[in-house]
Amino acid sequence: MVAQNIFFYAIAAVIVWSAFRVVTTQNVVHAALHLVAVLASVAAQYILLAAEFVAATQVLVYIGAIVVLFLFGIMLTRAKIGRDQELTHKSAIVGGALTALLLLAVMGYSLLDEFGWSRTPLPEDSRLIGVNGSNSATVSDSIFSQYLVPFEVISVLLLAALVGAIVLARKD
C-alpha cells in the first residue's frame, strides 16, 4: 500500500496548495481555476477511498456545473480580470489566520486523540464493494431504498433553490 500512500500525499499536497491559492490569490479567475484543481483532487481522494460514484458526481456537478456557475458569477459581477489588490481585507488577515489556526489546532488535536493510528480497511475487504467490484450499485440501492425519503426531500430542496434563484435574479 505504499503506492496508495504516495498517491495520497501527492494529491493532498495539491489540495492544500490549491486551496491555499484559492483563498489568497489576488486574481479572481485564478481562484476559480485553483478551485477546479482542489475539486478534482478531492475526487481523486474519493477514488482512493473506493467511492468512485461520488468521485464521478464530484467531477460532473462540481467541476462541470458549479465552477462554471462561479465563472458566470465573476463575469456578471464585472470583477476585475487580472490582479486586484482589493480582494482581501488586509486588516483581517491576522485575525482570520489566527482563527483558522485555532480551529485547526482544536480539530487536529481531537482527531489525533480520538482516532490515532486506526486504519481504513482495504477496499477489497470492505463491504462497500458490490458484486462487480464497484460500489455504485450499493450506493444506488441504498439511496433508493433506505434513504429514499431524504432523497426526495433533496429533490424538493433543489426545486425550491431553482425557483428561488430565478425569483432573485430576474429583472423586473
Partner: peptide, 22 residues
C-alpha cells in the same frame, strides 16, 4: 486531517475575502 486543513483554509477564505463570489 486533510479534511481539517481544507476546512480551516475555507474558514480563512470566508473570513478575509472581500469579494462575495470568493
Amino acid at each position: 486531517l486533510l479534511g481539517a486543513v481544507l476546512f480551516c483554509l475555507g474558514v480563512y477564505g470566508v473570513l478575509v475575502r472581500r469579494n462575495a463570489v470568493l
